[in-house]
Write a protein that binds this DNA or RNA. Structure first.
Length: 181
DNA sequence: CGCAAGATTGGC
DNA sequence: CCAATCTTGCGT
């Protein structure tokens, strides 16, 4: 595995931790989508949601390993893509060591809000399933100063999970910039 | 093999 | 409020 020393790319070890620990640190980091040698999009991650292992009934891994969620059980740094409602691709960054199925759903980058809009903007789909953000040219994440001003809120669209999972404040979002004087 | 439901979005 | 759109996982 490459670690890309000196490139500013977040290293392998960054991802080998509990998703709840990685989530606030991922805010503000630069998600980079390279289309070719001349074109790439670099935007800060503004909103993520934690899906935390087999006990979390909102997490796809709560029903064990399946063909779809297999990559969640890989080591941190892999990309988990899946389709919801037959329409929208969801981009997730797997975290935690191999065998511990944690993931972070990327819900916002730059000014773009909403996980479906993120993948549409960055042109991410099934073909990115299983690649690693710490050694891919096409999708990578670069270090940036730690964000200190963020809030936590309940996750969206997981009523099916029931309590206590519905109420867990596992959605992390950069606080809106204060404008004006 | 059928089918209900979905980590959402956009339009009426 | 509700349809779109199709994959997935589970029950039969």
């Amino acid at each position: 595995m490459k670690h890309n020393p000196g490139t500013g790319i977040l290293p392998y070890d960054f991802y080998q931790r509990d998703a709840l620990e990685v989530a606030p640190e991922l805010l503000g980091k630069l998600l980079i989508r390279r289309f070719d040698t001349r074109n790439e999009i670099r935007l800060p991650i503004t909103e993520v949601e934690v899906y935390r292992g087999s006990r979390d009934l909102a997490c796809h891994a709560s029903k064990g390993m399946t063909p779809r969620n297999r990559v969640m059980f890989e080591e941190g740094g892999h990309i988990y893509m899946y389709l919801v409602y037959g329409i929208h691709w969801m981009l997730n960054i797997v975290t935690a060591p191999r065998g511990v199925p944690h993931a972070l759903l990327i819900r916002g980058v730059g000014e773009v809000s909403g996980p479906g809009r993120v993948t549409r903007l960055l042109q991410l789909d099934r073909s990115f399933y299983g690649i690693s953000v710490f050694d891919s040219e096409l999708v990578r994440i670069e270090n940036a100063p730690q964000v200190s001003d963020y809030q936590t809120l309940p996750r969206v669209g997981i009523d099916y999970a029931g309590e206590p999972w519905i109420s867990k404040p596992w959605r992390f979002i950069i606080s809106p910039k204060k404008t004006g004087h």
